[in-house]
Every structure is written in C-alpha cells, then in structure tokens.
Design a protein around this nucleic acid. Sequence first.
RNA 1: GCCCCCAUCGUCCAGCGGCCCAGGACGCCGCCCUUUCAAGGCGGUAACGGGGAUUCGAAUUCCCCUGGGGGCACCA
Length: 453
Amino acid sequence: MKAVRVRFSPAPTGSLHVGSARTALFNYLFARHHGGDFLLRIEDTDRTRTREEWVVGIQDSMRWLGLDWDEGPILQSQRNAIYRTAADDLLERGRLYECFCTEEELKQRSDAARAARKQPGYDGHCRDLSPEQRRDLAAEGRPRTLRFRTPDEGASRFADEIRGEVRVEWSTIPDFVVVRPDGTPIFFLANAVDDLEMGITHVIRGEDLLDSTHRVLALREALGGSAPPLYAHLPLILGPDRSKLSKRHGAVALEEFRDAGYLPEAVCNYLALLGWAPDDGREVMDLDEITSAFSLEGVTHASAAFDHQKLDWMNGEWIRRLTLRELEARALPLAEARFGDRLDLARFQEALRIGQERAVTVGALLEQMDFLLVDDEDLVIHDDAWARLAGTERVAELLDVVDAHLATCAWTLEGVDLRPPLTEAGFKVRKVMPALYVAVEGRPAGLPLFDSM
RNA sequence: GCCCCCAUCGUCCAGCGGCCCAGGACGCCGCCCUUUCAAGGCGGUAACGGGGAUUCGAAUUCCCCUGGGGGCACCA
C-alpha cells in the first residue's frame, strides 16, 4: 500500500458533533496506524452557512480529543481560484454546461414531477441550449450555475472498503450543480479537486455520503484523475431511540461533553467502540492502544445507537485510571468555572481524592462538593432533600447538634467525625444518616461524611 | 415515490459452515462489602426479525418479505 494520506473535512456549520468526531477519530486512527498523514480540510464553500467561530471550535474539540493533524487547516473558501480553473476547463470540454433556471422554477418543476409520480430532481432543462439561447438567458439577468453532465446510461460502481461493491444506475442521478451563480464551488467539485490535488489515498467518512461518492468519482474522472482513493463509509451513529441523533437526546457536541466533565480519553474510547471492536475484545483502551489495534476490517456495517449509560461507565473507568494529579489537572478548569474565587484548593483536592473512586463525571463530582466550596446561603438544596428531612424525627435537634459541633472545628471531610456528638445527644447514627447528609451536604447522598474504613 | 446501505441480548460488540441449546461489555435484577450514595466482588436475566433455498450440517451462503437507516439541494 502506498503512503497513506487521509483527511477529515468537516463543514463548519456548527460545533463538532459526536458523529463527525467519530469520523475524525477513525481517520486519525487509520493514518497513525499506517504511519500516514492526517490532514484537516475545512469545507466552507457555502459562506452563508459557515462561521469563523465554528472552524475554531472544531479545531479546539479535536485538540481536546487528542487528534492532532499533520497539515491544515486548509480552508476551501481560500481556494476558489483553483476550483474556478477546474470548472472552466470542464466547461470547455463539455463536461459541464450552463444552467439558467431559477431556484423557484426548479422547485416548481420538481414538485410537478413528484405529483405526476415521476422522478423529482433536475430535468435537464438547460442541457442542450444553443449559444444564442444561452446568450439571451444570460441577458435576462438570470442566475448562471454550472451543471455536471451525468452519463445517460450505464452504472457507476466502486468497491467500498467496508461495504464492498456499491453500484447505482446513472439514470437515477440527475445532472447536478457544481458551481453557484456567485462562482463558488459546490461540495462535489471542491471535494473532487482537493482529494485529487492533495493526493488523498483513503476517504473515510459517514455513510450519509455513500451516494454522493458516485458523483465525486465521476467528476474526478472528468478532471483527469486516475487511481481514485479507496472509500470507506462508516455506519452512522443514531440516538438511543434509533432516530437521527440530535439535541433532544442529550449532549451531542463535543464541547458539551467537555463541559460536563467527560474525559477525552473516555470519549475517544467510547466513540472508537461505536462501530468497531478490536480482535481481542478489549474495551478500555487509550488512544495508542486503539491505534495499534485499529483496522477497517473491524468496522461494523450497521448503524449504532449512542448509549449515554455506557459512556458514563467508560468515563468512570477513566477517572479511576488517572492519577490524582492528572485528575486534578483535568478538573481544575471546570472547578474554577463553577466556583470562581470561592475555590478552596485544599478542600477541592480532598474532595477529589475521596470522590475519585465513586465518580461518573467530573461535573457530577463537582456538584457533590458544592457544600464544601459554596456559601451556605448559595447552596442549592437537592430536590429529594426536604422529603428526607421531613421523615426524620427530632430534625431541629439534629441540625442543632450538627451546627454546634461544626462550629467548634475547622471542617474537613475526613478530619471531623460527627458520630460522637450525635450519639451523645441520643441519636442512633445509623437511623439519621440520610438526614445527616441532607443537613451537611444539602443532598440525600454524596461524598462520605467521615472516614468509613 | 425512486435509489442505496444495513439487520445477533434493551444497547455496543464477538461469531466469518460444524467448537454456539450463541460469547464479552454497558444496563437491569439479586447477593456480598458498606454508618449515605457510589465504587468493587460474585451470580442471574436477556438475542440469531419472518419465509424459502443450498448443505450431511447455517447465526454464519443465496433469494424474497419485513423492519431500520441514508440519499434524491444553488448543504456537506
């Protein structure tokens, strides 16, 4: 196999989504496994849908995950001249033709075709205009797009690395637009030109792009490109209910996972296991281990449902694998964001040490240490707390004992034992445990109140 | 409507013709540990969508059906 060159080419129309992140990860894994190059190419040809902050955000998320790239980011929006030249050449050679239909006309005819139970999509209206007709249409001030002339017969086929032979009849693929009226290229053109020029050897992307491959390949061929890259289409990631993964299923943007206190190791690990598995069945693996075990052959064909519970478990595993120092480094930024200048480092560290063995996410752990770092009046009392207190006898007295004792000492989780004073006051410690947690932590359960060894 | 892809426990995967009355992980249930909740240990529950065909033998091959997903833009 020649030197591997792959690229991750997101459209910056939003922050990095778990589906795209998985695609980026698989490209990274494939490149690193084979000692090849991994490029980052930003497909921002549609200026109306892209934003600078998203191209920055995508890179931030990739760095957070630990997916470093070798070249880029290459912005397609800055390569217009290249696509322009390619399009002119294609037009001259008759592979492209000018189309003067307006979007409204297109939609109207497409709807009509649909109503007549015929194929919607472009009808070839401007396919064979005479030079005079083109001149007149242009003179009317109509928008001018460039369309690719699709073969009239035969089939397009290619061997997908994970799906095998894929084939579709050209008759089902209408002529498609490749250059907008403003001269900017559409995905198909920019994609074909770039993959060719950048020497991409393998295209690893989501299955949603499977059908578009035929068009990109035809364009590449028209461009004079030989030896097209090998394509590998990944199964899609679905929501827990098997519908399209979206916000209503919970967090979907990498930033959200980061802010909720998920570890990048866990997210990578979980994402890698969504649609892939190593031969030996290992599950908890770091990026290097996954890299050396990675192979496209291990990629599944069926789309996978995103399971937040398994991610949570995975994250707990990773929190426990980190040294306390490492965990502290990861948690500090989140703690600063949550507690601001009330962050007491000593208490934070103690809570982290005690919480590490029970945590699911750093975010949840931080929530549990609220009572240590937030002023009493600002402490948010957990919903279930009041019910717990209400069900306990001598609540007021209990609170008094707790307050009185805490007033006598510098409070730390392990340095203060509330049991003796409670016993002395006639409480059965075992019976008042739930209420005790509410009294001290503002929640029915949380960080251990005293050394329970 | 048309085209394409896919199909093993609730979920993620293993299985690539006999080793499978199907294995692991998450979840769930139970027990142990425990002066909260967890974490941890042990055990359990649970699946080859349906129908044909090939074969001595099919979860594994082929066909049909059904189901799920994707695509059919001047988005990518």
